[in-house]
Design a binder for these strands. Structure first.
Lengths: 118, 118
DNA sequence: ACGAGTGTGTACTATTTAGTACACAACCTG
DNA sequence: CAGGTTGTGTACTAAATAGTACACACTCGT
């Protein structure tokens, strides 16, 4: 569970490969429109994780949560960045405030907002 | 109020320059440990905004909110990124949920959390 | 034994990022 | 009118980012 980006996608890919077809390094690479050797290097961490665009494609192909893959790559999704950038002070304060808040507290807020309690 | 990064810091710097001493391009540059010509280019947007580290120093020197300057430069503070990266799914959901929430709603949450209502 | 499929090694590259170093021209000031 | 101060123009650069292109070696089924 505490894998690096490379380890994580290799595990996922090989699992899918065993289960079916088309998840060899080549198969995945061709559907992503990139080079097999590059996938291989990413998986073994011979190089840094791919760009955000490529990570999104990988997430789609592997059926994984893009936010999780991006996080493993040390990146924050562009759409989240845009939300923060529009009201930087507000969101900065919120996020710093929630830094050490337990998961359930944050979840409660998510639910409250979703249910329109404002 | 809707200035670019360059315009914003030029305005701020020249204001400080008029009010006192040491806020010429050279003065600021030397206190930041960078080249005057670079400041000049940044202010006229001949080049992209500086790195996060440099923006933090600029914010300090100009007495501005770092999060605001970073936002004008299209960046999100590293410390906020780290908070999100530790719980990417949770924070992704929260932030997307709050995307269109009015300021006062977000502020209410900030206050609630600060006051320990969890 | 052979060809298809699999992963990997080697070498190279274009673009972006984040600046440096120094020279020049205009201005005002005593 | 010399000297400092100010902003800017020109030329260059090291490191990082995000890959490509192709060749090689192993294994497995027929």
């Amino acid at each position: 569970m505490n894998a690096t980006f490379g380890q994580f996608i290799r595990t996922k890919r090989t699992t899918l490969q065993q289960a079916g077809q088309g998840y060899s390094v080549r198969g995945l690479a061709s559907r992503l429109g990139i080079q097999p050797s590059y996938i291989s290097k990413v998986e073994r961490e011979e190089v840094a994780p791919p760009s955000e665009a490529t990570i999104h494609k990988i997430a789609q192909e592997l059926g994984e949560n893009p936010d999780v893959l991006l996080a493993l790559a040390g990146k924050v999704s562009e759409d989240l960045r845009q939300v923060i950038l529009k009201r930087p002070v507000l969101f900065a304060e919120l996020i710093r405030q929630l830094k050490d808040a337990p998961d359930h507290a944050v979840l409660r807020i998510v639910r409250e907002v979703r249910d329109g309690n404002w």
